Simulated assay, not measured.
Amino acid sequence: MKQIAIVICNYNYERFLAEAIDSALAQDYPGTRVIVIDDGSTDGSRAIIGQYGSRVKAVFKENGGQVSAYNLGVEIADTEYVIFLDSDDVLYPGAVSEVMRKFEEGDLAKVQFRLDVIDEAGKQTGAHVPHTEPPVDCGRLLRDGWLYPSPPASGNAYSVRALKAVFPVPEGGINRYGADFYAIYGAALVGPVATLTLSLGAYRVHHTATPSVSFANSEQIKKAPKAFKERWVTLREIAKERLDLELPPAFHDFAHEKAYFGSSLYHASLSARWRWMLHDSRAYLHTIVANPFWGLKKKAGTLFLSCLCLLPYSPLSDFVVRYITNPLARRSTAGQ
């Protein structure tokens, strides 16, 4: 039987950690191992990990950031496959079995699956990620500069062989965080990606009570686009040096461009909204019109909604920006 490791990278998430570990231990696939890497937590995380004894492999390290934890996880994983589970997320009991059945179908670098979105208390929000299913040959589109639709870190299972072709990744600076960027897109440069169109886990989004344009947990909406650009530069270097692949200087990604869209238009004046649309929206519109993962209906709908931001009624504009940028805003509005 092929083996898979669930690697939980934790830093100061004691209030969620036990739930994540329990979900990993509850998997019904017999060849599942659980590794918990604590990245220098200063809360009660290490005591929680200690309570599991030999049921998990515990690794305690000095704080170095998420990339350093991933580097170590890839290094010590002695299984064929691995899932990096964020310590505030959970896997459903049959997740690994579903993933392993998919891996048996071919020589895949990654199997990704949908994640239900939960709030900080663990309550289902009714949303899920991702919303679009990518083609199997994500690598071809990635080599053309298109970042393919992917769930966050916990919704991906990897061939360890594929990850070892990309990792270790340089640590420090912008690379203290964002390790899943290199895993998600690096793996697609090594081999095919398969998608399971069912929810096999839950992704916890913090601070969901107030309507916002921000959806990601790890970085503020104004910082994330810059971080993505810097990580793309690093991924290009890794691809060239280790895989002998030449990636384009710039990438295209709607999720990236809508961060600019949201931070530029939310609560902006009418003149500022028109100015952005006339002078700064080229990349944003390109990721809609030329998007290889979307159908005509979704492209037309997104363009129509984006144009509503140009109407002289700021409450409508702010609603549309939230609707486009944050899936939770759509659900909360529908429930009112």
Rank of each mutant, 00 (worst) to 15 (best):
A77M: 12
I288R: 04
D119N: 15
E120P: 02
S154G: 05
S314C: 11
R331F: 13
K229V: 02
N10S: 14
D38F: 03
R331M: 14
H207W: 03
L198Q: 12
D43A: 12
R322W: 02
A20G: 12
A187I: 02
E257T: 08
Q336Y: 12
R330I: 05
S87L: 06
Y185N: 02
F103H: 10
K298A: 14
I324Y: 07
G44V: 09
H206D: 01
R275Y: 07
S214G: 09
A95M: 11
G65F: 06
V99K: 01
R15K: 14
A77Y: 03
N291T: 05
R273P: 00
W146Q: 04
P211E: 05
E171R: 09
Y158A: 07
I221H: 11
Y52H: 03
R140Q: 14
A188G: 13
Y29S: 08
D107E: 11
P170D: 07
H206V: 14
H128Y: 13
Y13W: 04
A24Q: 02
I324D: 06
S214V: 15
T234K: 05
P151T: 01
Y284F: 15
P225N: 02
H279R: 10
C9I: 00
G65A: 12
A179S: 12
G178M: 03
V117T: 11
N326G: 00
L141W: 08
F293W: 13
S97R: 12
G178D: 03
P30W: 06
L265Y: 09
I35F: 13
K57E: 08
I35M: 14
L91G: 02
A334G: 11
P211K: 07
D318A: 07
V59F: 08
L25Y: 08
K258Y: 07
L316A: 06
T132M: 04
M100W: 05
N326H: 00
D244M: 08
P93E: 04
V190C: 04
H267V: 14
R204I: 02
S87K: 04
P149S: 06
Y260C: 08
E98S: 14
L196H: 04
A329D: 06
V7W: 08
A268D: 10
F60P: 01
R231E: 05
K61Q: 12
K297Q: 02
V136M: 15
G73T: 09
A69E: 00
P315W: 04
G53H: 09
V56Y: 05
V193D: 00
S45K: 05
V96W: 02
P151Q: 03
